[in-house]
């Protein structure tokens, strides 16, 4: 499509009207447009400024979220020390445990979360464990447990005696030896 160049004095609405009045109308229209443009420009500027203030710097660093949130979540303190920490100071335990049936049971599975003890072994002492309460958490009889897993009816099995009367927790098979 081609647009023919407007010819001077023909076809334009305002030129059809007479003299001074037409010139004034044209001026008024221009001012309206200028005001509207000004309002839009102010709005756009306000949007850009407010957005820059409200949106955190790291937003969009990796995706549609605050990038620094990742580091904040990663900064949460650790409560379980992990068996590697335990084994640096207590190497005699894995030496026995890893030969027995409890080889894959990590320290804190029974002893509880001990990151505080690992950080400050002098003042934070791990709680003493009661085998009569602890062992049945895994070894009480239940029809949904895998068949090969050793499970007992505690009353029938030991009549209330503490488990460590006969079994050594770090190497539980009777007669297998090792530290209690």
């Amino acid at each position: 499509m081609t647009i023919e160049p407007a010819q001077e004095g023909s076809g334009r609405v305002e030129d059809r009207a007479d003299g001074d009045g037409a010139a004034m109308n044209r001026f008024k229209d221009a001012e309206h447009l200028f005001r509207v443009a000004l309002v839009f420009a102010a709005g756009a500027l306000a949007f850009v400024v407010v957005r820059a203030i409200l949106v955190p710097k790291s937003f969009g660093e990796y995706g549609h979220y605050r990038g620094t949130a990742i580091a904040e979540i990663a900064a949460q303190p650790v409560v379980f020390a992990g068996h590697e920490s335990c084994e640096t100071c207590h190497p005699e335990v894995p030496a026995v445990k890893n030969k027995g049936k409890h080889a894959k049971v990590n320290c804190e599975a029974c002893h509880g979360a001990l990151a505080k003890h690992a950080e400050d072994p002098g003042t934070v002492e791990p709680a003493k464990l009661e085998t009569a309460v602890l062992c049945v958490k895994c070894h009480s009889k239940n029809g949904a447990k895998p068949e090969g897993f050793p499970q007992v009816d505690a009353k029938e099995h030991s009549a209330g005696l503490a488990c460590d009367t006969c079994h050594k927790p770090h190497s539980p098979v009777i007669g297998a030896g090792g530290k209690p």
């Binding site: 992990g82 990590n106 599975a109």
Partner: peptide, 8 residues
């Protein structure tokens, strides 16, 4: 923590 504490 769950993996660390899982005995099996």
């Amino acid at each position: 923590a769950c993996c660390e504490a899982c005995p099996t």
